[in-house]
Amino acid sequence: MTLRDTTSLSQAATQADVYLALRRKQGRRLAETVIRYTLLACGLVSILTTLGIVTVLLFESFQFFREVSVVEFLTDTQWTPLFKDKHFGIWPLVAGTFLTSAIALSVALPLGLLSAIYLSEYASPRVRSVLKPILEILAGIPTVVYGYFALLFVTPLLQKVIPNLAGFNAISPGIVMGIMILPMVSSLSEDALHAVPRALRDAAYALGATKFEVSTQVVVPAALSGITASFILAVSRAVGETMIVAIAAGQRPVLTLDPRGPIQTMTAYIVQVSLGDTPAGSLAFKTIFAVGFTLFLITLVLNVISHFFVRRYREQY
C-alpha cells in the first residue's frame, strides 16, 4: 500500500473506503500469528526439557525397580552394583552426599552470611564495589578446577594437620565446595539484607542501638526469609555438585560419618559409571537413573522450599 491511498482517503473518503483501509489484512495477521506461535514454541522448549527430564528418569527408574525392589533400595546398607555380590541400598551414597554437603555448608553458611552482613552493613560503597566482584569470581571458577585444588593442594595441607587423613576423603572436597558456594550465599543474603527498609534501621538507631545491634538484631531477623532461601539453595547446590567430589572424595560407597576416609556421593557414582564401559540397558546402567532420580527429587524439594521463602520475603517489602 502506498502513501497516495491515504491522501485520497482524506479528501473524499466514504465510510466504505475507510473500512477497506483499516480492515485487518489477512497476510499481516497471518505473519504476526506465525511469529507469536514461534516465540511461544521457544518458551515451550523449557517445559519440554522438564518433561524430558522427568520422563527419562521415571522411565529408566521404573525399569530399574522391576529388577530391584524399592524396599531393598531404601533399606539395604550396601551399594555395590558394579561388584559380583550386588547390593542396591542407596543410603551409602546418600550418606556420602550429605557428609560432604554438611561440611560444605558449615563453611559456606557462616562465612557467606558474615560476608553478606559486612558487604551490606559495614563496607563503604567503594570497598563493596571492589570486594563483591572479586568474591563472585569464586562462583565462576569451573568445578573441575576446584577438584584439582582439593585433591592436590588442600588434602596434602590437611594431612599435615589431621592424622590418618586418607588421600581421598570427605573433608577436603567438603571445605572446597563450601568456598565455591560461599559467593552464592553471600550474594543472595546480601540482596535480602539490602531489601530491608531504611526506616527499620533508623528506628533502631533512634533507640540508641549500636551498628552491631542493629545489624544482628534488627536487619538480619527482618531478612530471615531471604537468608533462609539462600541457605536452602546452597544445600541444593552442594547436593548436586559433582566434579569436586568425583575427583577428591574417592569412590567408596560406605555408610559412615567419618569424614577422614574415602566416600562416594550420588553424583560421583553417576560419573564413575559413565566413565566405565557399562553397556547401555544393563542393570548397572539403569542404576545411574535411579540415583539421578533420587538426586532430582531431593534438589527439587529444596528448590521449591527456597522458592517459597523468596516469595515470602518479596511479599514482605
Binding site: A13, T14, Q15, D17, V18, Y19, L22, R23, R24
Partner: peptide, 12 residues
C-alpha cells in the same frame, strides 16, 4: 473515524 467505528472487530 469518517463514519467507521474504530472498535469494530474487523478493524486493525
Amino acid at each position: 473515524y469518517r463514519g467507521q467505528n474504530l472498535y469494530d472487530p474487523d478493524i486493525d
